[in-house]
Amino acid sequence: MITMTLDLLRSRKVLVLGICAGLLFTSIGYLALYPSFDDQLQGFADDLPDAYKALVGDADIASPEGYIRGQVYSLIAPLLIAGAAIAAGSSLAKAERDQTLVVFVVQPISRRRLGCSWWTFVVVVAAIGALASFIGVVIGGPLAGADVGIDRIALATLPMLAFGMLAGSVALLVSALTGAPGMATGIGWMFILVSFLANSLAELIDNLSWLSKVNPWSWHGAGEALTSDFATLNFVLLLVTTLAVGVGAISTFERRNLHL
């Protein structure tokens, strides 16, 4: 299984390195800019409409920690980590469509192990992205003047990782169900978009506040562990959902007649 996962990582190293570089430099770049306009940001933040505040996780973007949450943990990190994981998940369907999967299916590896290798690949890609994001905030945080310990940054990053794993698992499930890479990528991104919008609506509309309880975007908390307690329950919910979707993907891949 490890052999296969390592081979998947090697074969997609451009994707992985690209996402890492993107996360690292975007995070550092955004945070390094903060001191140049932090004094103007207070008044600006007060005037922001509630809808925008909801989009950035209701973070107080006038403070360095809030700015990190609003810029990195509300947008850049979840989108890029999840995007990388979705690309990893949909690569199973791509391998089926271009027939390269056949050379692995006829090796003495069970479909279950092959599916597990792909899921591990999704998890590892999300982890590498989360690590890049973590390093970006560790380096960029002091540049923005934030006084946050590495442990808080790590705790804030963990739910990002779990959210990325979930988005990648959704793409893997669609890959396993359909063998259609376009559909796997599309539905993966649809999952993020719907989840993101539902989170914003739940913040804005009282009647829809229940959405935040069932919404994976709300569960990742947009880096709230930077400034408050780590939401263990939400993190566990993300992990359990990821596990359920991942097991579903592997089980589906094990049973389906492949288009090979």
Partner: peptide, 17 residues
């Protein structure tokens, strides 16, 4: 898996990785 350990297969129009 047991079968694939004992057989060698070439599918139709099999691509190279």
């Amino acid at each position: 898996p047991d079968l694939h350990r004992r057989i060698g297969a070439l599918a139709s129009d099999q691509p190279a990785p």
